[in-house]
């Protein structure tokens, strides 16, 4: 199981989602993706993205206005 990191800080909607989508396409099932974003809409968007695409959102943490989402590819 590989771990992939994507930095989407500074980017605004919809580009963080585009980055996640591109990243997930390159991953294998079971791989874990860590995405960071400072877009306040990111928390809800990443949740919706995972709900709709069937990937597992393991955690979203926030530190100093930066969100980190942990997604496991299904």
């Amino acid at each position: 199981m590989a771990e992939i990191k994507i930095n989407a800080q500074g980017l605004k909607c919809p580009m963080p989602i585009v980055k996640i989508s591109k990243g997930i396409k390159l991953m294998s099932v079971g791989d874990v993706l860590f995405v960071t974003s400072d877009d306040p809409a990111f928390k809800e968007d990443v949740k919706a993205f995972c709900n709709m695409t069937g990937n597992t959102l393991t955690a979203v943490t926030e530190a100093g206005g930066v969100f980190t989402a942990q997604i496991t590819k299904k």
């Binding site: 919809p14 989602i17 585009v18 989508s21 709709m52 695409t53």
Partner: peptide
């Protein structure tokens, strides 16, 4: 459109 395409 871009958001929807990204979500598959």
């Amino acid at each position: 459109a871009v958001g929807a395409a990204s979500m598959g």
